Simulated scan of single mutants.
Amino acid sequence: MSPARKAHAKRAARAADLRPHRLPPELAAPLVNDPVLRTVSRAAFALIMLLAVLLLWRGHNAPGGGFIAGLMVVSALVLHRMANGESALHIEPVRLIPWGLALAFLTGLVPYLFGGPYLKTAFGYVTTALTGEFEWATALLFDLGVFVAVVGAGLHICYALIEVNPTQRVEGDD
């Protein structure tokens, strides 16, 4: 086996030993066990997630939508990871990206297949005893696809930045 293949196999084995969303002990943040951060992060996590749901729900008729809601969820999940040392998600975030893109694309494609313009939205009104009258729209499905793609991409980028070890040296460092 060539030296390059041995090095690649060694890196792959090391990566397989680590849980996908848990930092190795040598890279753990100094605030992981901080009781104040953990306590405050629980309340902040819940509030950020509620606001994200509101922005996602109202986004097709008012400011907000899937992109902003996705960024808010990314910030809540990064805060959770900073406070607890592990991710609240139990899957690789990069796996969310194709699902979100597929949902957004298919939401736009369905009206086109029925002879309408691409991304034409259908809407109507539903009345319930709990909420009263509210509007439903297929634009929410598009926003949901954008939301899932943004959460996947944002978390993938943030987790990649979190796992950078600043003590590593590369060629050209003095």
Rank of each mutant, 00 (worst) to 15 (best):
Asp143Trp: 15
Ile157Met: 06
Lys120Trp: 11
Pro166Lys: 02
Leu161Cys: 12
Leu18His: 12
Gly100Asn: 05
Leu101Arg: 09
Ala29Thr: 15
Lys6Ser: 10
Leu106Ala: 06
Leu130His: 12
Thr128Asn: 03
Thr107Gln: 04
Trp99Leu: 11
Asp174Leu: 07
Arg5Ser: 12
Phe45Cys: 02
Gly108Tyr: 04
Gly152Phe: 09
Ala13Thr: 15
Met49Cys: 12
Leu47His: 10
Gly145Trp: 14
Thr128Ala: 01
Gly85Ala: 00
Glu135Cys: 01
Asp173Asn: 13
Arg14Lys: 11
Gly59Ile: 06
Met1Phe: 10
Arg11Lys: 13
Phe105Trp: 12
His60Leu: 00
Leu55Val: 09
Asp34Thr: 06
Gly85Ser: 03
Ala16Tyr: 03
Pro111Gly: 01
Ala7Lys: 13
His21Lys: 00
Pro111Trp: 01
Val148Met: 15
Arg42Ala: 04
Val53His: 02
Leu51Tyr: 08
Gly100Trp: 04
Val32Ala: 02
Leu18Ala: 12
Gly85Glu: 05
Asn84Val: 01
Ala137Gln: 09
Val150Cys: 02
Gly145Asn: 08
Asp34Arg: 14
Leu106Ser: 05
Ala29Ile: 13
Pro25Thr: 02
Ala16Arg: 14
Glu135Lys: 10
Pro24Gln: 00
Gly132Glu: 05
Gly70Trp: 14
Ser41Phe: 11
Leu89Cys: 00
Leu89Ile: 15
Ile157Gly: 01
Phe134Ile: 00
Ala12Gly: 05
Ile157His: 02
Ala16Gln: 10
Val150Glu: 03
Trp99Glu: 05
Met49Trp: 03
Ser75Pro: 03
Leu71Gln: 08
Ala9Ser: 12
Gly145Gln: 08
Glu135Ile: 07
Phe134Glu: 04
Leu101Ser: 05
Asn165Ser: 04
Gln168Ala: 15
